[in-house]
Amino acid sequence: MFLLPKGNPLFENLAVSKLKLPDVLAKLTNGAFTGYASFVFQSSTAILVFESGKLVSALVEGQNGKKEAGFEALSALAELMVTTGSGALNVYKLSKDLTMCIHALLEGEILYKAQELKLIDIKTLLEKVKEDHMNGCLRIYTDEHSAMIFYKDGNPLGFFHDGSSDIETSSTESQKIAGLPGAKIDLFSTQSADELMGTNLLEVTNIQKIWDNCVALHKFDIDKTNLERQERDKKVTSQKLSELEELVKSIVGEYVGKVGRGLVDKELSDNGGNTCLIDADGAEKFVKGVEKAAKLLVSGTNIKLMMEKLSTAISTAKSEF
């Protein structure tokens, strides 16, 4: 995403996770805001451009360079806000004209794209911009550097380059980049600011519905994930419990004989199934029950040994849950 002039910052680094898109948009619309709002996420950046409270353009660009504009951008932004737990919102107030140029940069008509500067007559191009009373933005860049010249009615409004935070009046940096080997240009044009006022994405988009759908979808996804995790955990727990039950049966069987397995089954059944083995009270009742019944079948010495083994096995297993 391009670096854009910051103008007059209204908010910076607001945590996106605490915000709701419809509320943000309503606030900017109601305040007749002119400028742009940038939502910076780890993997994407979204820019919303406002002219007198009207949303004139929306753009979301991912790290992979994939861009979405308009309705898709608003949907993508809502999804990013709902699904990512991080992200920051910055809101910058700009002049109407500069906002128009930002719009041109983001969604304007592309007249030149990645055109090598040495292959074109820049002087003629600039004259044409002036003659055509063009509104837009000329971007001059190399792999390392970038500068933008914003035009209104063919006249430069100002210059902006990476490393600066606001519009400058000097063209020195732009000329310097233009002189670098391998410099390229992009030229974007757009309608005038007044014409842009006829556009308002918020009028054709039910942002509340988009937001609600995203929230519902996200909740559904979370619930689904939770359910899957719970089922997975349940399965793992069930597997571990079965192994513990088998271990307990083999210990009791070792001292009591084959009836030991039945005895364990009965005590587990009386105490609500094998889950009692990992519950403090349940395990105690189970062990006492086994001990009581074993007294009718096993010698005191063997009961003592069996109880020690049982307690160790259950405690070890408990710590694994």
Binding site: G257, V259, L296, V298, S299
Partner: peptide, 9 residues
């Protein structure tokens, strides 16, 4: 026959 492998059988 039920408890023949226990201590007290």
């Amino acid at each position: 026959s039920a408890i023949k492998d226990s201590d007290i059988s």
